[in-house]
Simulated assay, not measured.
Amino acid sequence: DFFTRFDLSEPEQQEKRLRSILDCDLLVLDDLFLSRSIPDAAGALLQTLVHQRYKLRRSVMVTSNRVVQDWGAYLGDNTMSSTILDRLMHHCHSLEFDGRSYRLKEAAETLARKTKAS
């Protein structure tokens, strides 16, 4: 959603938004690649954000359900994916979780309680 709104903004608005993202202490990219692909302009913007923040030594936290090996497919460009991952993974702390979704687990527990109460 952010990338779409950014792309539709006037150039001076884009510069202002970009500056605020580059200047913040921590940029959180939550649920990156939630959809299976993003527009080319969004990929280029993501690359710019990650590259500029890397140069400025600013922190970026990314959450995603997608494995990094597939990022090239979601971006539609393996080179861009490699560039982004290179900067994200240099000096990074990577956490990988396996298991069922806590949302699905909670929903199943709620359904089980309702079934027992009936």
Rank of each mutant, 00 (worst) to 15 (best):
residue 71 W to H: 04
residue 90 H to E: 12
residue 83 T to F: 01
residue 39 P to Q: 09
residue 23 D to Q: 14
residue 46 L to S: 01
residue 12 E to F: 10
residue 33 F to H: 06
residue 103 R to Q: 04
residue 53 R to Q: 05
residue 55 K to T: 15
residue 52 Q to D: 09
residue 52 Q to S: 08
residue 100 R to W: 06
residue 105 K to H: 08
residue 94 S to Y: 11
residue 28 V to W: 05
residue 31 D to L: 03
residue 75 L to G: 00
residue 16 K to D: 15
residue 57 R to C: 05
residue 61 M to H: 05
residue 24 C to E: 12
residue 110 T to S: 07
residue 46 L to N: 01
residue 75 L to D: 00
residue 47 Q to K: 09
residue 48 T to N: 08
residue 19 R to T: 11
residue 24 C to G: 02
residue 86 D to R: 00
residue 87 R to H: 11
residue 44 A to L: 12
residue 38 I to A: 03
residue 66 R to S: 13
residue 93 H to I: 13
residue 73 A to G: 06
residue 29 L to R: 05
residue 81 S to D: 03
residue 35 S to C: 00
residue 69 Q to D: 14
residue 51 H to M: 07
residue 77 D to E: 11
residue 29 L to V: 10
residue 98 D to N: 09
residue 16 K to C: 04
residue 51 H to G: 01
residue 15 E to Y: 11
residue 69 Q to R: 07
residue 99 G to P: 07
residue 51 H to V: 05
residue 13 Q to R: 08
residue 40 D to N: 06
residue 68 V to L: 09
residue 97 F to R: 04
residue 14 Q to D: 06
residue 99 G to D: 11
residue 33 F to W: 10
residue 95 L to M: 12
residue 98 D to K: 08
residue 85 L to W: 02
residue 35 S to E: 07
residue 89 M to P: 04
residue 105 K to T: 08
residue 36 R to H: 15
residue 45 L to C: 03
residue 78 N to A: 08
residue 90 H to N: 10
residue 81 S to V: 10
residue 21 I to R: 06
residue 69 Q to L: 01
residue 72 G to F: 01
residue 101 S to W: 12
residue 68 V to D: 05
residue 88 L to V: 07
residue 109 E to M: 09
residue 58 R to H: 13
residue 42 A to F: 04
residue 22 L to T: 06
residue 104 L to H: 10
residue 42 A to Q: 03
residue 41 A to N: 12
residue 92 C to M: 07
residue 54 Y to A: 03
residue 109 E to N: 11
residue 86 D to I: 07
residue 50 V to W: 00
residue 106 E to C: 04
residue 75 L to T: 01
residue 21 I to N: 04
